[in-house]
Computed example of a mutant assay.
Amino acid sequence: MENVQCARALLEAEKIFSKRNVEDDPPWSRYFDAAELASEGAHCYRDLRLPSQAMEFVGQAVDLCDPMYVRTLAFDRLVQAASHVHMGEPGKAALVAFEAVNLAGSLKSERYLRYIRDLNADLAGYECEDSVQAFKTLIAEKYPSLDP
């Protein structure tokens, strides 16, 4: 049921977005573009643990995102990594997450750290994979305050 409600909400958002005139938007929301909308869809489906749908949206988000928005790209890559784990691909997840953490640089927002924490939890039990171990080592070194 949540999947259907999510799909409806995203379709409605896409309809509204397609009709908007950026010049009529308040200045604080003008950053919201097609990449941001796709990113929101990816986050929704990641939270619902529907990785195939999340991957469709995250692919669009990454393709459309201006490379100068490294924070947004880092979040999108962490959503992509979580989706790989949820699809049973922990090795791919760790490689994408490693890239996201390196891309994020010194980012330490609570939301970002929660995504890292959640991904670390999702990767528990897969430490025998080299890429997972490398990711966990990177996280332990870069964010020692995070619980393993």
Rank of each mutant, 00 (worst) to 15 (best):
N3P: 12
V4R: 15
V4D: 14
Q5M: 13
Q5V: 01
Q5E: 11
C6D: 05
A7D: 05
A7L: 15
A7C: 04
A7Q: 05
A7F: 12
R8F: 15
R8P: 08
R8N: 15
L10H: 06
E12F: 12
E12P: 01
E12V: 10
E12H: 05
A13C: 00
E14M: 09
E14K: 08
K15F: 08
I16R: 04
F17Y: 09
F17I: 03
S18F: 06
S18E: 13
K19N: 10
R20F: 05
R20I: 07
R20E: 02
N21A: 15
V22Y: 13
V22W: 15
E23L: 11
E23V: 11
E23W: 01
E23Y: 03
D24G: 04
D25H: 07
D25R: 04
P26W: 12
P26L: 15
P26F: 15
P27F: 05
P27H: 00
P27G: 07
P27W: 14
W28N: 13
Y31G: 02
Y31Q: 00
Y31F: 01
Y31L: 04
F32P: 11
F32Q: 05
D33H: 04
D33R: 01
A34R: 11
A35K: 00
A35V: 09
L37A: 03
L37W: 00
A38L: 05
A38V: 03
S39T: 00
S39Y: 10
G41I: 01
G41F: 13
A42H: 10
A42L: 05
C44H: 03
C44S: 09
C44A: 02
Y45T: 04
Y45E: 03
R46Q: 12
R46M: 14
D47H: 14
L48T: 08
L48R: 14
R49L: 01
R49D: 12
R49A: 14
L50K: 03
L50T: 03
L50V: 12
L50Q: 06
P51E: 11
S52E: 02
Q53C: 05
Q53I: 13
A54G: 03
M55P: 07
E56R: 14
E56M: 11
F57Q: 08
V58R: 07
G59I: 03
Q60M: 10
Q60I: 00
A61T: 00
A61G: 04
A61Y: 09
V62T: 06
D63W: 08
D63R: 15
L64P: 07
C65Q: 06
C65I: 08
D66N: 11
P67D: 02
P67Y: 02
P67M: 01
M68L: 15
Y69P: 08
Y69I: 13
Y69E: 01
Y69C: 04
V70G: 07
V70I: 09
R71Y: 02
R71W: 04
R71T: 09
L73G: 10
A74F: 01
A74L: 06
A74M: 07
A74R: 02
A74S: 10
F75H: 15
D76M: 09
R77F: 09
L78Y: 06
Q80D: 02
Q80L: 00
Q80A: 03
A81W: 08
A81Y: 11
A81G: 11
A82G: 05
A82F: 14
S83G: 13
S83T: 04
H84R: 03
H84L: 04
H86G: 06
H86K: 02
H86R: 00
M87P: 14
M87Q: 01
M87A: 10
E89N: 11
E89P: 10
E89D: 07
P90L: 02
P90T: 06
G91D: 00
G91N: 08
